[in-house]
Nucleic acid binder design. Structure first.
Length: 894
RNA sequence: GCGGACGUGGUGGAACUGGUAGACACACGGGACUUAAAAUCCCGAGGGAGUAACCUCCCGUGCGGGUUCGACUCCCGCCGUCCGCACCA
């Protein structure tokens, strides 16, 4: 391992020089002590969860990692936060479940197989072993007996069982669909996995292909998934908004318009969907998607149209074309008769901005009140008719509004009353919508309809390293589910990765199967599940991880929902939405009693680091950087050859920018407590945190400082178990107050996941404790013991090893800190006898005043007016008014 | 374009429901200890002006208004940064 540049400057274990006022003979040695305490927790099996244990259940879960081989700082931050909550809740008497597992299927394992010839299973399990060791070094209070890996046959056998149950309940479908094909990974991607027309993983431009696929019918639950978001009060509003937008509900009218051909003869109808059917009198054109059957039909007889359609299809996949978003259209030669204006008809275009996948793939254009239609008409010179006007416009103003409408740059999209609309004139938008809907429904040519943007979830992947879809294709019987008794459908071990495509498909024997229906020769499904399937129910599996069914109902009903789920914002849509679907599906199939999997959700920010570049533009890792000077003078050099470096922007730690810091190095040199403490300090947990050497060193110094402080004060405190004195002197009382205040504040901060503030309050209390004099009577020494016990208890969830070490030094009780209850604050000590309040004159602070807590308004007024600074500020003017907010402020208005 | 979040010292950030802005930490400066350094401990610090000093005054939470006895906090209008969605009819 390379030595990092941030090595502590003093070697561990080196005796301190004589000048230090301490009784501690050596520095706290995290390396040795941390593994000691980890071993003890392990031996005592402290973190094993059981449904039978006492206390209210509390399920805290962090998003499980993909076993890439090494943990990164994001993991450290995520799992530290979860661990603080777990340890805190345990101390508060809750029955805590805090498990860990591995999201172990997926493409990197196959890539490793292709690049290095190592089998995906071998690669994955080796990575899991390595990462487990790293996680254990962090001292997380996890129930490792529940560990699972999604690539274990025991896990995916149950996933296959779930799939068959879902199939049975009609939650699954299989049909041919246009899919997003990733030409690099040779697989299908869900819409959610396509970002800017590129594969979310490979970054390759996605192609459209027609394939038969398996789908989970998540869109059937669109309404329910949308409605239930309102109940998720302990989710960030941001995530709920993102899911709402993703589900994309819109209510409108789907109706038929009559088509006429070039000679004015009836030519069938065109079905359109609109949420603004009130604007029907503003219709000046209709448009269909270039993939719409009408366009395809017309293109057969029209080469120019055909060429236009081809252009659009090509252009549609490039990012640039989407950015520019210029609207174009091609007249397909048909016209639509206006439904309410006799003799009026409008042209029909094939247009690039109409999507086949939404609504009916066809629209009626109302350029007056839809910005897209407006832009389109301006470009093509089509009439623009305003049909809604602000309600306050009358007479000439209204006429002017209508006359000048086409010259505007932006449409009028606000509330108003209908104009230019015959029988709708004067109605509100809502009323007009109702009227049009009523007429269409009466004619039987239309109906109110709700559309969702959310599509069904395509789960088929043409990959090896995933859960096999447990079905068999039989010529005679069609698609036949694999009987439960035959599960799991195991992946074959003997596969090769020398050619692209699915190894299961080209395996010589694996796909040969007997049809469970007729016994004839049949073919096994060679597609595997999208790995999002694996992660959509692991939280439920943790409740009964060894069960030989997907989940034991009583265990699921006991532990779920997860009380606090913590992970990255990048899963705001996919993982969380799929998990919500799965929980509902598990409810329908009898495995769970609830619909929502995660009661509380917290999304933590990323870990960033400064970037460094050589003059040739290549990135340099922090390990190889030496920094000199500070502020404006700050310069970076290559630690090896001294070459000057350019200090770049602060970015998310990533391999490509070489700005990562390896947690293992940090743990190796500073210990787990230091890295945990630093991760919790300073930055609010939902925001990004910047990794700096100075910050880590600050945390390291605090570890040592706390250890010294406890080492110095503990021997002076009174013996454990000493009875509480009857009375306390001023010093002792002040110390008790500080301790109980810190306890109260840190508890509140951890409850609210405001770890940075909890850290600040610990610092504050430590500072107060460092400043006290230990010269005093029994009352002070008693208060000192109490204060130290509280301090260590507060630090415990954040720095558990140091906590145990200090707990032991305090010689408190036999039990471990990890088994000790959270202290409780005495409310009487949280209230001060006197309060210092600010005194303002005309809203400006002029002085302050210390008065009894229960001082009367009159007393405060008199005292305030008596102050020199107040008198000076009044300058002899009349006092008009005095505002007294007890315990807060006095404001003299003069 | 739509939606959301945010904007506070040199830096990360505190400030509860409108009530002493800058807690706490990092970095920095000064001092003690040391042959020296590191480590440690003590002290200082938003900007400006005055004073020998205790202190006092002015300005200050992106900008401009407003509400209020009182605004980082609420309202209106801008500017900027970041994130999400994006021809969804």
């Amino acid at each position: 391992m390379t030595l990092p540049y941030f090595l502590p400057t003093t070697a561990l274990n080196e005796p301190l020089s004589q000048g230090t006022r301490t009784m501690v003979q050596s520095r706290y040695n995290p390396k040795e002590r941390e593994s000691h305490w980890q071993k003890i927790w392990d031996e005592k099996d402290l973190f094993r969860a059981s449904e039978d244990a006492q206390g209210e259940k509390y399920y805290v879960l962090e998003m499980f990692p993909y076993p890439s081989g090494r943990i990164h700082m994001g993991h450290v931050r995520n799992y530290t936060m979860g661990d603080v909550v777990a340890r805190y809740k345990r101390a508060k008497g809750f029955n805590v479940l805090h498990p860990m597992g591995w999201d172990a299927f997926g493409m990197p394992a196959e890539n490793a197989a292709m690049e290095r010839g190592v089998h995906p299973a071998e690669w994955t399990y080796a990575n899991i072993d390595a990462m487990r060791t790293q996680l254990k070094a962090l001292g997380l209070s996890l129930d490792w007996s529940r560990e699972l890996a999604t690539c274990d046959p025991e896990y995916y056998a149950q996933e296959q069982k779930l799939f068959l149950d879902f199939l049975d309940k009609g939650l699954v479908s299989r049909h041919s669909a246009k899919v997003n094909w990733d030409p690099v990974d040779h697989t299908v991607l869900a819409n959610e996995q396509v970002i800017d027309c590129k594969g979310w993983r490979s970054g390759a431009e996605v192609e459209q292909r027609e394939l038969t696929q398996w789908f989970f019918k998540i869109s059937d639950m669109a309404e329910e998934l949308l409605q239930a978001l309102d109940g998720l009060e302990r989710w960030p509003e941001k995530v709920r908004t993102m899911q709402r937008n993703w589900i994309g509900k819109s209510e409108g009218l789907q109706f038929k318009l009559d088509l006429v051909d070039g000679k004015g003869q009836p030519a069938g109808d065109l079905e359109v969907f609109s949420t603004r059917h009130d604007t029907i009198f503003g219709m000046t054109f209709c448009a269909v998607s270039v993939d719409h059957p009408l366009a395809t039909q017309a293109a057969k007889l029209n080469d120019a149209l055909s060429a236009y359609i081809e252009d659009c299809r090509r252009a549609a996949t490039t990012e640039e074309a989407l950015e520019k978003a210029e609207k174009t259209g091609f007249d397909i030669g048909l016209r639509v008769a206006h439904p309410f204006i006799d003799g009026k008809s409008v042209p029909v275009f094939a247009a690039n901005f109409v999507l086949m996948g939404y609504g009916t793939g066809a629209i009626f254009g109302c350029p007056g009140h839809d910005q897209r239609d407006f832009d389109f008409c301006k470009a093509l010179g089509i009439d623009i008719i305003p049909v809604v006007a602000p309600a306050d416009l009358k007479g000439n103003a209204l006429t002017a509004y209508v006359d000048e409408y086409s010259d505007r740059d932006e449409i009028f999209a606000g509330d108003g009353l209908l104009v230019n609309s015959d029988f709708l004139d004067g109605l509100t938008i809502d009323k007009a919508k109702q009227e049009i809907a009523k007429r269409y429904e009466a004619l039987g040519k239309g109906s109110r309809k709700v559309n969702f943007r959310l599509r069904d979830w395509g789960i088929s992947r043409q990959r090896y390293w995933g859960c096999p879809i447990p079905v068999i294709h039989c010529e005679a019987c069609g698609v036949v589910p694999v009987p439960v008794a035959d599960l799991p459908v195991k992946l074959p071990d003997d596969v090769t990765f020398d050619t692209p495509g699915n190894p299961l498909d080209r395996h010589p024997t694996w796909k040969n199967a007997e049809c469970p229906g007729c016994g004839e020769k049949a073919r096994r499904e060679t597609d595997t599940f999208d790995t999002f399937v694996d992660s959509s129910w692991y939280f439920a599996r943790f409740c009964s991880p060894q069960a030989d069914e997907p989940a034991i109902r009583s265990a699921v009903d006991y532990w779920l929902p997860v009380d606090q789920y913590i992970g990255g914002i990048e899963h705001a849509i996919l993982h969380l939405l799929y998990s919500r679907f799965f929980t509902r599906a598990m409810k329908e199939t009898g495995y769970a009693g609830m619909s929502e999997p995660f009661d509380g959700l917290f999304t933590q920010g990323m870990v960033n680091h400064e970037t460094y570049k050589l003059e040739d533009g290549s990135w340099v890792a922090p390990v190889d950087v030496r920094i000199e000077g500070d502020g404006e003078e700050r310069r970076a050099f290559h630690a090896g050859n001294g070459a000057p470096l350019k200090i770049g922007s602060i970015e998310k730690m990533s391999k490509s920018k070489h700005n990562t810091v390896d947690p293992e190095d940090i743990i190796g040199h500073y210990g787990a407590d230091t890295i945990r403490w630093f991760m919790l300090s300073d930055s609010p947990p939902e925001r990004d945190v910047q990794w700096t050497e100075a910050g880590v060193e600050g945390a390291w110094r605090f570890v040592q400082r706390l250890w010294r402080l406890v080492g110095e004060l503990a021997p002076r405190a009174c013996a454990p178990g000493t009875a509480m004195p009857e009375t306390f002197g001023d010093d002792a009382l002040a110390l008790r107050r500080a301790a109980h205040k810190a306890l109260n504040e840190v508890s509140r901060d951890i409850e609210a996941l405001r770890f940075n503030r909890a850290v600040a309050h610990v610092y504050e209390f430590t500072n107060a404790l460092s400043a006290i004099s230990t010269e005093g009577g029994e009352d002070l020494l008693w208060a000192l013991r109490e204060a130290l016990e509280i301090l260590i208890a507060l630090v415990g969830p954040m720095m558990p090893h140091l906590g145990e070490e200090c707990w032991k030094a305090l010689n408190t009780r036999q039990e471990l800190l990890a088994q000790s209850p959270w202290p409780s604050a005495d409310p009487a000590l949280l209230v001060e006898d006197t309060v210092t309040i600010a005194v303002q004159v005309n809203g400006k602070r002029r002085d302050e005043l210390t008065v009894a807590r229960d001082a009367t308004k009159e007393d405060i007024e008199a005292a305030a007016l008596n102050l020199d600074n107040v008198q000076r500020a009044i300058e002899g003017r009349d006092v008009k008014k005095i505002i007294v907010v007890p315990q807060r402020i006095v404001n003299v208005v003069a």
